[in-house]
Design a protein around this nucleic acid. Sequence first.
DNA 1: CTGTCGATAGAACATTTATTCCATTCCAGA
DNA 2: TCTGGAATGGAATAAATGTTCTATCGACAG
Lengths: 281, 281
Amino acid sequence: MTDDTLATAAPRDFAALRALIGERAATLPRRLTQVATYALQNPDEIAFGTAASIATHAGVQPSTLVRFSQALGYQGFSDLQDVFRARLRDKVPSYDERLRQLRDHGLAASKAGLLLDGFAEAAERSVADFRHKADPAALERAVALLAGAETIYLVGFRRSFPVTAYMAYAMGKLGIRHILVDGIAGLGVEQTSFITARDAMLSVSFTPYSNETVSLTNAAKARGAHIVALTDSVFSPIAPGADVWLEVVEANFEGFRSMAATLALAMTLTVAIAARRSEGA
Amino acid sequence: MTDDTLATAAPRDFAALRALIGERAATLPRRLTQVATYALQNPDEIAFGTAASIATHAGVQPSTLVRFSQALGYQGFSDLQDVFRARLRDKVPSYDERLRQLRDHGLAASKAGLLLDGFAEAAERSVADFRHKADPAALERAVALLAGAETIYLVGFRRSFPVTAYMAYAMGKLGIRHILVDGIAGLGVEQTSFITARDAMLSVSFTPYSNETVSLTNAAKARGAHIVALTDSVFSPIAPGADVWLEVVEANFEGFRSMAATLALAMTLTVAIAARRSEGA
DNA sequence: CTGTCGATAGAACATTTATTCCATTCCAGA
DNA sequence: TCTGGAATGGAATAAATGTTCTATCGACAG
């Protein structure tokens, strides 16, 4: 309370830290200014390096880094480093962290608003990440394969069902023949039993992988149908057997994964199939 | 030279490592498979954590991490960790650099890539907009109302069905009593016929508003149930009669509206209801 | 010129770290 | 059921890390 450095809470997010360094840099001692400059110019080095290695590169002593961190209100160098690391993480700050951050800044906000903010951020990150991690070649192959199918079987249960449900709706509007395998009344097997080699199946599955999706996919493959898998890791049981597999990794907030990237991909596939077919015709 | 693990040079880039883990995972011992799965699902943890902390989270011994690394041809855990870190170094969070990387990756080269880019941008815009325009007070009221309900009826057809389907899934996991009105076999009316004044209905509807949603909502209101409407404009026929109504305007691309913001809101509502109920208990 | 106070360097320290090693467990094949 | 070899858990270890402490340096006022 009586100490300036303690009264000013150290920022926990990178943007605020950068602003703080910027405004304090001028008033800091020589060596600390040197550290400040280096930190802003090589944030990755701060995130990954050790105090010793960073000190060497910045031309100062390790102890200077500690003093720099403390001058900004952090407990030590490691504490400051956490902020630089958080910047590179996929992880969306948890509800608790947001709450704490809000208290520090003295902003009053509703609890639901905090949750919304978290989910919104998870969605934005998911989409942004997917945007440049996506493999255009695989996407193109998936579209070609599905566009060539007579009937497209859409399979996805639990968390994945909204995705296939949406595609079924959109395909209906676009005149793409499809069957939404909804497993209603336990009839998943019956719904797919007439699939042929001229058809294709789009299987959507994320951890924990639903057994039913796996078995339906394998059965379809055994009947000669082509398989496009939409999943979240190489370990997905539907990935290895698929003709094409597309990876989507969603960010999560409070343990709930976003669906934004998956749905953007679903829309892309659907519209791309329609576009390709109309070209051919 | 004579040793298999040494003959196979360990990959130095993340993509190759991921592929290697994927193909080797099946033949690896149990604990090593466990590490493999964890590593691919939590790459950030591997990048930043210490052997001890990662081991704890993955449920194995630190030594297992070293063994895992060596099994893949690395010298030790630190060696493997470098690859995970390199992945984050390449990743650029700044928006300008993201934009540049997009061009470099040539995602826009393929047709499907072009579509994906459009849908991704629509999703990002929707979420960002909604984040700023959302009304926390209305959100809070909606949560209070739904949390107080005995059973929550989820109504949404056509484009809105994926939203209610997702909420039904999430509510199931969170132990929130609900009924997903799916209108299957035309039984929408029957599904909602037992709704009482102690229950609430969440109606999701966007232009063009489905008649069925409107009539089900009105019927529920007539029976004394509380209504929360999730819709896209004041002109929505379900908005005026609702106790609370939440507005979500999605951006669209090629005439297809994003669902990212709506889903983020759906997740928020669901989790907020669960949170509020656990507080009360 | 001198005394004072903050800044700095660098050594010393206590942790924490990744790794190694060995005893135990598990499992397949005889 | 027994046996051999791999897989595993967990303690031991040596290296490294971040932090603290103290002597020294440098600037500046008196």
